[in-house]
Design a protein around this nucleic acid. Structure first.
Lengths: 201, 201
DNA sequence: TTTTGAAAAGCTAACCGTTAGTGGTACGTT
DNA sequence: AACGTACCACTAACGGTTAGCTTTTCAAAA
């Protein structure tokens, strides 16, 4: 994995990157809808089929960082300090992600996304995928011992928080407000009979 | 609006219904992906362009009841009894919707939806639309006096509850669990300084 | 009643994302 | 040096969707 990658893998990664870079540049220059896959392929000097061997769809060209995002979320849960409670750890990571998305340099990209129904739809179902991964990571933590329903619910709430804060006029205070609600929801998820202790007969 | 509709409107509605019925029947008979728009149009004895003048996309043929669903949600908020708090009213309606979707008669349709990525994506972005409508309805209630962020958040949570409960092995208890969390989140949305009274300087 | 305007429906032909199917080429390995 | 495997290219098509234009059907003015 960390061993020096062979020439083949480097070339593949380079091709992938070149396609992604070219696509994003064209999309920003001429608008997402005005650029066809055939345009991207021609400009990146590859065949149309090569584009689709690296990316599952035209929309995926824009969300190249997809898996990165997903890993950061799950790791925020699995790699947190032993004593750190779930919600603050989640909150920290999501705040970082929101800051990343609302940075000035990312503004043109997000404007493009907001203007294209296809891209919005793609991002929405991407978020749901991330919420499922997050739910799995939460459910796997033995310290929490929650029902799968509670885990899935809190995962969705967290992703909702990311999405809503990103869109808010003041992302920071919005995230504050939302995570106060999430914290309360998480506290309520512990069933009454379990509040006194974690052990069960 | 309630006046006797002219022949033109009746014919239009009939055409629309015939297309929707034909499409759903074919989809269930042969599978969603195995039926093309051209098949639907031929079987309903209309032109392809007519199908798209009534429905925005192939997926929309399956979610014909879309607007109905949306209205029920917003009305659950706006038409609730004067003293009834928001969350229980929402809960009642969503429970009814979940029951409706998990009824045996609806099972084949939802299986078809779950098996088609395109349909799932469509349903996801439909839910977001509904969450936005719901948020608007909640924000419009003068008795609640919440920030828009809190309204949007609680609306998303409620829709998440619908979606998660629908998928759960035991929808009823899942909905119980989720709405306990939502209730707590809503209580936490009232900012500390506002708990004593609604008036502000 | 006749005329007229417009909504509804139809047809053709295309555009665009996406996917076989086929074959060639460069790379890592023996 | 030879071989097998990814990787990549090309062509051609399929299926959803739309544009452009004509025809039909209804409603209401004349």
């Amino acid at each position: 994995m960390t061993a020096p990658p062979g020439r083949r893998e480097r070339k593949k990664a380079a091709t992938r990157q070149k396609i992604a870079d070219t696509a994003l540049r064209l999309f920003l220059e001429r608008g997402y809808d005005a650029v066809g896959i055939r345009d991207v392929a021609a400009e990146a000097d590859v065949a149309v089929t090569t584009v689709f061997s690296h990316f599952a769809s035209k929309e995926a060209l824009v969300f190249e960082q997809d898996e990165n995002f997903e890993q950061r979320l799950t790791r925020a849960v699995t790699d947190r300090a032993r004593e750190e409670p779930l919600i603050p750890a989640l909150r920290r990571e999501i705040q970082a992600l929101v800051r990343h998305c609302t940075a000035d340099s990312a503004a043109p990209i997000w404007r493009m996304i907001d203007e294209s129904p296809a891209l919005r739809k793609y991002e929405e179902s991407m978020r749901l995928r991330h919420a499922e991964s997050l739910a799995t990571a939460i459910a796997a933590d033995p310290d929490l011992a929650q029902t799968t329903t509670a885990c899935r619910t809190i995962a969705r709430f967290a992703i909702d928080g990311y999405s809503l804060a990103r869109e808010a006029a003041d992302p920071e205070t919005a995230l504050d407000e939302i995570f106060r609600m999430i914290e309360a929801a998480w506290a309520a998820a512990r069933r009454p009979e379990d509040v006194a202790g974690t052990a069960r007969p």
